[in-house]
Amino acid sequence: MQDHTLQPGQILARGVARHLRQHDFVSIEEFVPKRGLRVDVFALGPKGEFWVIECKSSRADYMADGKWQGYLEWGDRFFWAVDADFPSELLPAETGLIVADGFDAEILRMGPETRLAPARRKVMLQKFARHAASRLHGWRDPGVSAFCDPAPSRPRP
């Protein structure tokens, strides 16, 4: 995929995901922990830890985000990912900070650790696995998902 087809936030997410792979994290972009929330990058670390990363491409993008605090309860750490020109003084000091571009990133400030409860961790791990497998299936066999995905009204086994 070429950069000209990606939105600025997607470019940041790609750089963040590449950097996190160097730390043995795997990640999913646009992950939905619950209805109404969509995490830009949701990362699973080698010890089972979850990091939530919100990508902000501009001051206006950040100012328009009124629900970021709702993401805090879905991961062990929370980070903002911004580019080098972003006015980082706008971001709360008690959150993590990653500076990224489309190719790599650097963690400038670790977000404080707030461990998920074991029951929530299990649910998030299952959602992560199902989401990743579903994306892989859609990529491997495009178009079949519309015929095979369970209908929203059908009970799941």
Rank of each mutant, 00 (worst) to 15 (best):
V82K: 04
F147T: 07
L91I: 07
R156W: 15
P112A: 07
H137S: 15
R59C: 06
P142H: 04
V32S: 13
G70S: 00
E29M: 12
E54N: 03
G70I: 00
D40F: 05
F25L: 01
V41L: 05
K127V: 11
S134T: 10
L90H: 04
R156A: 08
K67I: 10
A43L: 00
L108W: 15
A64N: 02
K67S: 08
L116V: 08
L44H: 15
H137F: 09
S134E: 08
P152H: 11
A119P: 07
V144Q: 14
K34M: 13
D104Y: 01
A146Y: 06
E54F: 01
V41F: 02
A100M: 09
L97H: 05
F128V: 07
E106R: 09
D85W: 01
K127I: 05
S58K: 10
R109F: 02
F147H: 12
V26W: 07
L116Q: 14
G75Y: 03
E106D: 15
F128S: 08
D61K: 13
K127T: 04
A93Y: 09
R120Q: 04
R135T: 04
S134G: 07
S57I: 02
K67E: 13
K47D: 13
D76R: 03
W139L: 14
D76S: 10
A64P: 01
I28Y: 00
A151S: 12
D85A: 14
P112I: 13
V52F: 03
M124Y: 04
L108G: 09
S145K: 14
R135N: 10
D83E: 15
S88I: 14
T95K: 14
R135H: 09
Y62H: 12
W68R: 14
W80R: 09
E73C: 10
D24A: 09
E54R: 03
L97D: 09
E94G: 13
D76C: 06
L97Y: 14
A84H: 00
K56T: 03
A133L: 07
R120T: 05
V82Q: 01
D104T: 05
A81N: 01
R156Q: 08
A133P: 01
D149P: 10
A119W: 12
G143Y: 00
P92W: 08
R35S: 10
R77T: 08
G36C: 10
D76A: 02
W74G: 02
H131G: 13
F128R: 02
A129H: 04
D85P: 00
R121Y: 14
G66E: 01
L90W: 01
D76P: 05
S27V: 06
L72A: 03
G36D: 06
L125T: 06
H23W: 12
F147D: 06
A146D: 10
S57Y: 02
G48F: 02
R156I: 09
S153D: 13
V26H: 15
A64I: 01
M63L: 11
R135D: 02
